[in-house]
Design a binder for these strands. Structure first.
Lengths: 153, 153
DNA sequence: TAAATTCTTTAGGGGACTCTAACTTTAGGG
DNA sequence: CCCTAAAGTTAGAGTCCCCTAAAGAATTTA
C-alpha cells in the first residue's frame, strides 16, 4: 500500500499534536498543515481506510500502531535534518525547518543514516573546525539579517 | 507566476536533452521523467503559456531564455547535492541521484550555498578526516553491492 | 437548559498531473 | 514518390489534494 508524501505529513502532524496535547483535533491538524478542515476530513477517511488512523466521525482521533510508526520514522528524519542543518551547516532555524519538512519525506534511509554518522564523526574528529565554520556564518548572517527572507508560518 | 516542482523537472530534463543531443524530443522527455508522451504534451503547452518553452505542435522544441535559466539553476543544485552526497557523505551514486532529484527542487538558496561552502571548507581544513570517513563507508558498501538497485534513464 | 459559538462534516467542484485509446503528422526505406 | 512505422497529438477520463458554502453536532455561556 502506497503512502503519499502528503499522507506522511498528515500522520506526522497528528503524531506531534498527540505528543503535545494528548488529543488530536481536526482544526489543529488543519492549522499545522495550512489547509481547511474539510481537507483534513478527506485525509482522515483515506488514512483510516489504510489502517493508519482510527477515525469515526465526531469521535476522538488516534493513530494506529502502524500510523504511529510511520510518523515516528518521518519525524526522526526531521529532527536529524534539523540538527544537521542548524548545528553543522549553521542554517537559520526557520529555513532549516522548511528544508527539513520537505526532505524528510524523500531522503533514503541510507542517506539519513549517513548524515547521522557524518555529523557524529565530524564533531568528534574536528569539533573546532565545525565550530569555526558555524561562527563565521552565524556572524555573517546577523549583519544581513534584514535581507534574508524568512517565510512566516 | 508559479512554477511547480514538476514543471521544474520538465525544464531540467529538456535542458539536459538539449545539452546532450542538441534536440529535444517528446519521447525522450517522457522516458527521462517516466511518463507517457501525452503527459509531456500537456506539460509543454503549459510551459509554453508561461513563456518558458518554445513549442508549436509538430515543430522543434526549445527552452526560452527564462526556461533555460530556471533549468540551469535547478541543475546546478543537482550537481552540488550530488557532489556533497557522493564525495562528502559517500552515498552510492544511484541513491545520491534519487535524493538529489527531489531535494534540488526544494532546497533554499541559502542552504545550497551553505552546503557548497561547507564542502569546500571541510575539504580544505580536514581532508584526511573526510577521506577516512568515506573510506570506511565505501568499504562497507561494496560488500552489499548486489542489493543496490540502479534505475537506468 | 436554551441560545450562541465553535467544531466537524457533507456536498459539490476545481486544478495539477497522469493515463489509455485512437487519430494525425512526419520521416525513412523500398 | 509512396507507404509504413515511428513520433506526436487529441479526447476523455481518473486520482490526489484542495477549496467554499452550508448543514449538523458538540460545547460553552448566560
Amino acid at each position: 500500500m502506497e503512502i503519499s508524501k502528503r499522507e506522511e505529513e498528515y500522520l506526522e502532524a497528528m503524531y506531534l499534536l498527540y505528543k503535545k496535547k494528548g488529543i488530536i483535533r481536526i482544526k489543529d491538524i488543519a492549522k499545522k498543515l495550512r489547509v481547511r478542515p474539510p481537507s483534513v476530513v478527506d485525509a482522515l477517511k483515506k488514512l483510516s481506510e489504510k489502517g493508519l488512523v482510527e477515525y469515526e466521525k465526531y469521535d476522538r482521533i488516534l493513530l494506529t500502531e502502524k500510523g504511529r510508526e510511520i510518523a515516528e520514522k518521518t519525524y526522526s528524519k526531521h529532527l536529524l535534518l534539523m540538527e544537521f542543518f542548524i548545528n553543522i551547516l549553521g542554517i537559520p532555524p526557520e529555513i532549516a525547518e522548511e528544508d527539513a519538512c520537505q526532505f524528510e519525506h524523500y531522503v533514503h534511509e541510507i542517506t539519513a543514516e549517513r548524515i547521522r554518522e557524518f555529523a557524529k564523526y565530524i564533531q568528534e574528529q574536528c569539533p573546532y573546525v565545525i565550530k569555526q565554520f558555524i561562527k563565521e556564518h552565524i556572524e555573517k548572517k546577523e549583519k544581513s539579517e534584514d535581507t534574508s527572507k524568512v517565510e512566516e508560518v
